[in-house]
Design a protein around this nucleic acid. Sequence first.
DNA 1: GCAATTTAATTCATACATGAAATATTATCA
DNA 2: TGATAATATTTCATGTATGAATTAAATTGC
Lengths: 161, 161
Amino acid sequence: MVPFKNSLPMQLYRALDAVMPAYRALFAAHNLTEPQWRVLRVVWECQKTTPHMVSGATPLHVSEATLISAQSLVGIVDRMVAKGLLTRLRSVDDRRMVYLLPTPKARALAETVLPKVDAIRADIADRLTEAEWETLGALLSKAGGTKPNEKTQVENERTAG
Amino acid sequence: MVPFKNSLPMQLYRALDAVMPAYRALFAAHNLTEPQWRVLRVVWECQKTTPHMVSGATPLHVSEATLISAQSLVGIVDRMVAKGLLTRLRSVDDRRMVYLLPTPKARALAETVLPKVDAIRADIADRLTEAEWETLGALLSKAGGTKPNEKTQVENERTAG
DNA sequence: GCAATTTAATTCATACATGAAATATTATCA
DNA sequence: TGATAATATTTCATGTATGAATTAAATTGC
């Protein structure tokens, strides 16, 4: 029987434990939690890539892109709205729908934090070669039951939305 | 800039999202949460591997082995005690110390669940070859900045902080 | 020998995760 | 057309994570 600490979940959790503190410290320095950053990043990306297609940033889309459940998202967005980072806009066409929009403050914040996030990423990137990163990514998705070339759920939703 | 979804954290979270539901469903079927299972497993292992060395199962040890912070562990252990799975025993030598002991009920539970956990693991194991698993493990620890025989993050955090 | 520090466990406040269920709205089809 | 199903979001209850502070006991320095 595989020792507990060599199990796939524990190896994954350990890897996360190793890389996340640096990111979280950065986010905390900007009064953001990690989930809040993920939401901000996705909402910001949606605005940037499709400036006129506000419909991209529905809670469902953000939920899928961030791997944050819809229920969790409610509270996260609540707090971000309270902090003046997001606004909720209910659709007139389909009043079940809500659009999440970044405020100017949020956009500025994203543009401040993104380079620093990338700096951390670049630092971590040095630990492996290009080829190794590629192998790791492929093995991770394979271990997760997703064939390398197969589209992920998030991707499908993305292209669909 | 690396797309958000191809970042190491998101790849790790996706892999966890892919493998954990099966485990969590099993744990839930036995009225356990995932952290509770981790604690149970470690406490049970300590008992099993060193039957007379009760001192192995201190909260600190469990915290390090499970990657659960000491504060979180308090509540988790509280609930497990309430469910009759653990008993807390305070040391007479050093009254700051507590030993966590599995009840007979907990031991029976562990022996019921462990084979099922291993069945899930075996199922997942088929997705990669032996060599690939080894590569994945090596790359994960390398990506985490930990050389194979180096101490874990939790330990480092402690000694560093 | 005792003040200062360290250590182990815990508490507290805030934030997040999860399954189940509720709410409101729109789509389906017999 | 009107009951029913599906969809998007939210609420609720319970459990967990995290940083900061607390308590109690043990160790160290002087």
